[in-house]
């Protein structure tokens, strides 16, 4: 028997989809800024495994010589990024949605199971809930990363007026590096997130647009003695 389950509230869907282009443009304009002093690399001593970023990358995305433009986008869209993020966090707190999102004592174990399962190293389905442990940890972490981007960003934006903050983050150079690392974190999050959404399929993707998911629920008799409305099983 098929039933419609209300998965994502309208507000969450708007916050999610507004954040996507805003964060994408923040990363893009951040690249335009970073280009003017592109000193980060992965390596040691004179050995460089990877330079952020190769010339071909700059060429492909037309990043060179656009510092002023990058700063102007960055310091305009930062307001939308902050407002959208604050409203999102406020909404999850007021609506109780945070209960689905905040990791609890079982989340780490569950996240390991989910990861092993997704890598094909473990048989058996992980527990089926709105967000499994891996999702709870990832979605909470990405919100904390957003707060981190705001703080490290402020620290390099106003390093004299907010000298206490810049100092707390290890100084101007460190704050800039932290801001960059967090950005790379979003890129990593994005890649895994998109891969997982593709894996999870249309029903799951549609729920972030239309709000509902179609689930196969057993008939009323099978619901057992559980009081209140039945909790149908969600796929993925």
């Amino acid at each position: 028997m098929k039933r419609l389950v209300e998965k994502h509230p309208l507000a969450i869907r708007w916050f999610h989809w507004l954040n996507f282009p805003i964060l994408a443009l923040m990363i893009w304009s951040g690249m335009l800024i970073y280009w003017a002093n592109d000193v980060y690399r992965i390596g040691w001593g004179r050995t460089t495994l990877f330079k952020f970023f190769p010339e071909s990358f700059y060429k492909a995305f037309n990043i060179s010589q656009r510092l002023a433009q990058g700063m102007n986008w960055h310091f305009t869209l930062m307001w939308l990024f902050i407002i959208n993020g604050v409203l999102y966090v406020g909404y999850t707190l007021v609506s109780g949605e945070w209960r689905h999102l905040l990791p609890d004592r079982n989340s780490l174990r569950e996240a390991i199971q989910v990861t092993l399962h997704d890598l094909g190293l473990r048989k058996g389905e992980p527990p089926v809930v709105k967000y499994n442990g891996a999702q709870k940890i990832a979605y909470t972490a990405v919100v904390l990363m957003g707060a981190g981007s705001l703080l490290t960003g402020l620290a390099i934006y106003k390093p004299t007026q907010l000298a206490w903050l810049t100092g707390l983050l290890g100084g101007y150079e460190w704050a800039r590096a932290e801001h960059f690392i967090l950005t790379m974190g979003y890129v990593g999050f994005f890649l895994v997130h998109v891969a997982q959404v593709v894996r999870a399929g249309w029903n799951n993707f549609r729920s972030m647009v239309a709000g509902f998911e179609i689930v196969n629920a057993p008939g009323p008799a099978a619901d057992g003695p559980a009081p209140g409305p039945a909790a149908p099983t969600l796929p993925a």
């Binding site: 419609l4 109780g96 209960r99 509902f212 179609i214 559980a226 909790a231």
Partner: peptide, 29 residues
Amino acid sequence: MENNPDYSAPPLPASPAGEPAAAVAQRAA
């Protein structure tokens, strides 16, 4: 069915059980 292991969150609201499949499909569409 196993209890919903989403420890502290309330269950998600669902359409009434027993609704004809065609009606569910139409509303979804």
